[in-house]
Amino acid sequence: MSGLRILVPIKRVIDYAVKPRVNRAQTAVETANVKHSMNPFDELSIEEAVRLRERKVPVSEIVAFSAGPPKSQDILRTAMAMGADRGIHVVVEDKDPQLEPLGVAKLLKKVVDEQKSNLVILGKQSIDDDAAQTGQMLAGLLNWPQATQASKVQVEGETVTVTKEVDGGVETVRAKLPMIITTDLRLNEPRYASLPNIMKAKKKPLEKKTLKDYELDAAPRLKTIKVTEPPPRKGGVKVEDVDGMISKLKELGAL
């Protein structure tokens, strides 16, 4: 085998430190003028791909892929500054119907075929819709083995060993390439994009495509009825002293 051909799909989402707000019409979340960044789980995926190469696992190529608005270019450049070799951007305008996990998975299948990828590293979920389905669906469509919620990845020849985070502990699984891995928080600590690498990333190839190029019917199957914010936290009250606290707790029925 000539080496790993890694595909890393990444998504542009509202920065995770930003508190999202629902629009007035309650149909979606406000995105205009809101800081966007790469989905944090996807940062871990890129980092892991780059680390595999740094650990001298034979990696012939790391391709970062994103389907999303024109600005997704920024996160693709970031991915390349972190170490991806090139990028593919399927432009989905904000006004176009948005992709659902199944649509993305179908698209990714075509990309995998086109790019002859043999390892796909995805985030276990994206923090905007929290669907946590794409990796699994892609594995299904490709009929490849999958290891979800990875906290450690080891590659030896054709064999990949993944430590997964499961409730209350870890589980270690092993499979042969090609395969799908989804990443979890403990996997690694993503690096900063350094200045020299940001410069280099500007010169790396970034291919622009459309859904049409992949002849994909990605019409949404779900309709969003309503989006609401969680109920606001009720303000606390201050009590003067211990007696005050006890009577307050009694009043609230906590005692």
Binding site: A17, V18, M38, Y192, A193, P196, I198
Partner: peptide, 24 residues
């Protein structure tokens, strides 16, 4: 600016925060 200070070797190395977490 970044390109300029790198090219003119005013700075030797540097990083740019890509998200708010990194800014912090």
């Amino acid at each position: 600016f970044l390109e300029n200070v790198m090219e003119t070797e005013i700075v030797s190395d540097g990083v740019v925060a890509q998200d708010q977490t990194q800014m912090g």
